[in-house]
């Protein structure tokens, strides 16, 4: 992905997060994570990213 591609995804996700009801945001993100993991097609890679995303949350 080019920096421009990443930016497109970043913006689309921000807009969509604002568009869904606040109390549905978690559900939305969980669905998205499963969908993308399925697209990646590599369970080990998906699990690594899950652990990675949990890092630095309290910085």
């Amino acid at each position: 992905m080019t920096p421009a591609d990443v930016e497109t995804v970043y913006e689309t996700l921000a807009l969509q997060l604002d568009a869904v009801d606040a109390e549905k945001r978690e559900l939305f993100l969980a669905k998205l994570a499963l969908l993308l993991a399925h697209d990646v097609g590599d369970a080990a890679q998906a699990c690594r990213r899950i652990h990675e995303a949990a890092e630095d949350l309290d910085v």
Binding site: E26, L27, A30, K31, A33, L34, L35, H38
Partner: peptide, 17 residues
């Protein structure tokens, strides 16, 4: 609970879920 609900909700369009 969240993952279960996400799987059920996705399953409306995706049989694998």
């Amino acid at each position: 609970q969240l993952m279960r609900d996400a799987a059920l909700n996705l399953s409306l369009r995706h049989a694998w879920a």
